[in-house]
Design a protein around this nucleic acid. Sequence first.
DNA 1: GTATTATGTGAATAGGCATTCACAAGGAGG
DNA 2: CCTCCTTGTGAATGCCTATTCACATAATAC
Lengths: 214, 214
Amino acid sequence: MGTERLDTEARREQIVQAALGLIARDGLNQLSMARLARQVGLTPSALYRHYESKDAIIEAILSQMRGMLLTNVNVVCRETADPVERLHKLLFLHVKLVRENEGLPRVLLSQEVYAGHPERRRMLYENISAYLGKVAKIIEEGQRQGRIRGNAQPDVLSVMFLGLIQPAALLWQMSEGEFDVTAHVKKAWKVFRETIAVSSGASEQDGDTAPNPQ
Amino acid sequence: MGTERLDTEARREQIVQAALGLIARDGLNQLSMARLARQVGLTPSALYRHYESKDAIIEAILSQMRGMLLTNVNVVCRETADPVERLHKLLFLHVKLVRENEGLPRVLLSQEVYAGHPERRRMLYENISAYLGKVAKIIEEGQRQGRIRGNAQPDVLSVMFLGLIQPAALLWQMSEGEFDVTAHVKKAWKVFRETIAVSSGASEQDGDTAPNPQ
DNA sequence: GTATTATGTGAATAGGCATTCACAAGGAGG
DNA sequence: CCTCCTTGTGAATGCCTATTCACATAATAC
């Protein structure tokens, strides 16, 4: 075999990465220990030196995904203070994430990951809820600042926000790249921005509507 | 066994229904010929009297789903002529469909159905595209009638329309019914209606804004 | 009636699956 | 050098999978 000995920490990382690649290419239920082992250049049994079971590997994948999503939120919150701009940046970071990591929606939306695993299902739901909660927080702040219209609930808008990407990502994957996610999301964002913007004119230009930055 | 002899036409229908039920409960990759056979009260080998293979069964399921989606479009087009009301009704028919048929999103969004099947992938994509195309047609007509704002492309709005349901359906399934799809879609529709409505005041009431019907 | 066709059964096949275990060899500490 | 722990292998286990085939029985045609 390739048989380059690696310490378990590096191997674990390598295994998760390889798994994500395989899922991206062939889908989740095509992921087998044998294929995964071949991908990292090991024998199937060697995988058990680093992960207790296949389930443990999947859990590692889920954990990594949660990390990626929450990282995006942190990034946009650090980069800008404007709530609308935060949503804007977050949207396109999400698109980038999905484009560079096809395995992500394949796992998050597959509904096969948590078929017989109640705790895993609950964990996934709480991860997504956490993400949506942060989006809602951004929206809420925008409403307090008067930059986002107040006559819509933040949690409803946050789910609609997710709806800007999710169907587009699906179409993108289904069409094998034929459908242009980025182009669609750009246009959809434009509509959404006008939707959430306060009615008082300022639709295109960022201006002096926000008095205090923090 | 249950062994009530049925002609192949009735059996085929019964098999597809049972498969949908199993998928709804346990997910697609838990669907096996053995389980399916037990569900309809037959032996696995008996299934091959009515379907050539497991793939053929899955294709029958996909075909049935396309039928359900397109039926909804036809229903709303027969029930009302108003484009906005058509979208409204279609949205809630879709919710009803998903709620009564959990297997539908589990197949349509699973990305596992078409993993190694290029033609099936293409077929699914064309089905969804056809559905979205019809939605876009409705929107386009609304724009011609002056009931829907013209400064957004119908195809973009149609994907956004899908985005009103899809993430909500996902959350509903993930939370095992805890997340209230219907309530969310109601609120999301309200926002979306205001988004697509012509800016000239008439947000709630149907008015006399449209000069020529065709 | 008999012959034929449609629908069912049960056993068998061949392959993939996750997982385990006895063993080998590298690398570090003494 | 010897020892121990870590990381690898390859074979084996038991289970589940889709599919096939020889055979049985119900219904239908003549």
